[in-house]
């Protein structure tokens, strides 16, 4: 299959352009998504191509914007609503959690909400309320799907799939990913199902499970551990809900050791859910450790930010400690 190298934000814009071309009812809403092209240019070109009716700038009103996007989807459109920073998604959790996630259930199937809430997580010097990774909050909401790609090809593939789902999907990208580049298949087909993890680096001694930007950290840690004789299998979760416990479990059944890595908080985090679900699944003894943000807000102060965020060095150290006396 032929492919083309794209920046991460270009992969998002391309997926949206293709889906908007295919589906007249798809409407994009959010702050600065119009002529400005999105805070990270991830909507570049859409306004010029599809016009102001379908690419709608919204006021600074996350709660109503999300509600409007979800209500419009419930009433027959398909919508993607952009919430610039995931911290502000908190303002719109009411319509997302209380209405959209439950709409199908509470109406006995009479109402579906085919909408994508796209939002950007991650710390990058902007401070405590522009930095959070709260995707684990959403994993426990019945009716929500949560997607968090780590590279342009997955962003493209998973966004296209998300835009064709019949229920609400939260699509989480990351500030540090937009400038990364990668090969994206030229095909216009949708072939990347939600709920499938990917082995991005095979290994035999320990499974490193991560999602979004943290996958890059996991790969870096795996490269550093190789000379020390530790072979790491890196798994990119890609979708957090539903979680591909089968693939992670299959890997951990071989390595017998699991290190989870995430940029969010450790308590009730993605890693604790992954580890518990893997333990429930396997009847063999496994070693488990987790790496996450330290339990503090993420400051805009570079020294403090670096201290709180997980990095490859902490993954290396945690992995070596876990495997001690193997």
């Amino acid at each position: 299959m032929s492919s083309r190298r794209l920046f991460f934000n270009e992969a998002i814009a391309r997926a949206l352009a293709e889906e908007m071309e295919r589906e007249d009812k798809l409407v994009v809403l959010g702050q600065d998504v119009g002529a400005y092209g999105g805070a990270y240019k991830e909507f570049a070109g859409l306004y010029e191509r599809f016009g102001a009716q379908r690419v709608r700038d919204t006021p600074v009103a996350e709660a109503a914007t999300i509600g409007i996007a979800l209500g419009a989807a419930a009433a027959g459109l398909r919508t993607l609503v952009s919430i610039t920073y995931m911290d502000f998604l908190i303002l719109g959790l009411e319509p997302l959690v209380n209405y959209a996630a439950k709409a199908r259930y509470k109406t006995g199937g009479a109402v579906r909400v085919p909408a994508v809430v796209k939002t950007t997580a991650g710390a990058k010097g902007q401070g405590v309320a522009h930095a959070q990774c709260i995707e684990s909050w959403l994993m426990g909401v019945p009716g929500l799907k949560v997607v968090a790609p780590s590279n342009p090809a997955d962003a493209y593939g998973l966004l296209k799939t998300s835009l064709r789902e019949e229920g609400p999907v939260v699509f989480v990208d990351h500030k540090r990913l937009f400038s990364t580049a990668g090969e994206v298949p030229e095909t216009n087909e949708v072939s990347m199902p939600l709920g499938k993890a990917a082995i991005v680096r095979p290994g035999t001694d320990v499974t490193l499970a991560a999602h979004s930007y943290a996958v890059r950290i996991a790969v870096e840690a795996a490269e550093r551990l190789e000379p020390a004789g530790v072979s790491c299998e890196v798994i990119d979760l890609r979708t957090l809900a539903p979680l591909d416990v089968e693939s992670i479990g299959e890997s951990v059944a071989r390595t017998r050791a699991l290190v989870t890595l995430e940029e969010g908080q450790p308590a009730c985090g993605v890693g604790s859910e992954v580890a518990f679900r893997v333990r429930e699944r396997l009847d063999v003894g496994i070693r488990v450790a987790r790496v996450a943000a330290r339990p503090a807000p993420v400051s805009s102060n570079a020294v403090l930010e670096a201290e709180v965020l997980p990095d490859a060095a902490r993954v290396v150290e945690t992995t070596l400690t876990l495997l001690e006396g193997r």
């Binding site: 190298r5 920046f7 990058k124 540090r176 400038s179 990364t180 580049a181």
Partner: peptide
């Protein structure tokens, strides 16, 4: 002629 830097956030250019 090499790709100059540093450019904030950027690893790769087109």
């Amino acid at each position: 002629l090499v790709v100059p830097g540093p450019i904030e956030d950027v690893e790769e250019i087109r």
